[in-house]
């Protein structure tokens, strides 16, 4: 052997090797290997996006108020086959019957308090980006109190809505008889989501999937929402990071005064009304290096889990909360884009 090296093979550590405990990931979590993983389309985001536009004044903010300050779980939906927005009343009746049947399954005795579920479906024509987009559809389940049917006191227990804001990419080459409402937002018990989902799946031959938001897209949201003007003083911009490869979970919360964040963003952004990937990177890099200077922690090595700003807050598991009605359309536009890229 040359140089008197021992025969055989060896691993050698070079320099300052960080020896992290190689804690295995919990198996079976978040493993979703679908889609063209190795293709060039994977994990790409467009070079630039438009800033979320402010809503026009003619749209009534009160109408959309019930969508605000609630946690919505995101799903992506493939196009609905033979769906007609004129038949919403019939659909509501059919869904009501279906839910009653599902609830009765396996029950020998009719538990009447449980079964009085009323289904309402309505259109939300305000929620769209352009005339091309189909009107959003709202589904609400409410519990009838069987004690006093005359009072007709109803308690809302579950709501979900389908929407499509500026889904031009998908709308252009959609085959006939299909309606594209790629984004589905749910607030309520998961059991109802499953029942409603399976009815839509059977009736319109569509497919639901949870829509997770990747840390990369969360950085986009952080930058986009920081750049938005908000009238009054709002909550701090907060970024939540989780540190991987640790035996115990460790979360780092990074809160920035919204005005400071806006000031930083204004120095980064070059063309008004438009955001590029590069600008998003520079913005996050600035925040990371500031944090590193104070705490000697590389936030870029951690996972961005949650972004909350005065506009909205988003969690990587696909949970969103809208806080400003005027930017509702803008936020939905980005979410629609993500939903479309998931189903394509």
């Amino acid at each position: 052997m040359a140089g008197g090296r021992p025969a055989g093979s060896a691993i050698e550590m070079e320099g300052a090797m960080r020896t992290l405990p190689s804690s295995g990931r919990p198996s079976g979590t978040g493993w979703q290997s679908r889609g063209p993983l190795f293709g060039r389309n994977y994990g790409l985001s467009p070079g630039s996006r438009l800033l979320p536009p402010r809503c026009q004044e003619n749209a009534d903010p009160q109408k959309m108020a019930f969508l605000l300050r609630k946690q919505w779980t995101l799903y992506s939906v493939s196009p609905l086959y033979k769906f007609s927005s004129a038949d919403l009343k019939d659909y509501a009746r059919m869904l009501g019957v279906f839910i009653a049947a599902e609830k009765q399954k396996g029950l020998a005795v009719d538990v009447d308090g449980e079964l009085g579920i009323k289904v309402a479906m309505s259109g939300l024509p305000e929620l769209r980006g352009s005339e091309q987009d189909p009107a959003a559809v709202l589904v609400q389940l409410s519990l009838r109190s069987s004690v006093s049917p005359k009072n007709s006191e109803e308690k809302l227990i579950w709501s979900g809505w389908f929407c499509c804001v500026a889904g031009d990419d998908l709308l252009e080459n959609l085959p006939e008889n299909f309606t594209c409402l790629p984004l589905f937002l749910v607030n309520g018990a998961e059991s109802y989501t499953a029942i409603v989902g399976s009815w839509f799946q059977k009736t319109f031959d569509c497919c639901f999937r949870r829509l997770a938001i990747s840390p990369l897209n969360l950085t986009w949201m952080a930058a986009m929402w920081t750049g938005c003007k908000v009238d009054k003083n709002t909550a701090a911009t907060e970024l939540l990071f989780s540190v991987p490869h640790l035996p115990q979970p460790l979360d780092i919360s990074y809160a920035i005064h919204p005005e400071d964040a806006k000031a930083l963003w204004d120095t980064v952004q070059k063309t008004p009304g438009e955001i590029t990937q590069e600008e998003v990177d520079v913005f996050m890099e600035c925040l990371y290096s500031h944090f590193h200077r104070h705490f000697k922690i590389h936030l870029s090595a951690t996972k961005l889990v949650k972004v909350s700003t005065g506009i909205a807050s988003a969690h990587c598991d696909g949970i969103i909360k809208f806080l400003q009605s005027q930017y509702l359309i803008g936020v939905l536009m980005l979410l629609t884009e993500l939903a479309i890229s998931q189903i394509q």
Binding site: G30, Q32, S33, S45, K303
Partner: peptide, 15 residues
Amino acid sequence: VGRANNCSVEMNAIW
């Protein structure tokens, strides 16, 4: 690459 949902890096940069 199996965990697209955890992606923190823009793939264009890697290409």
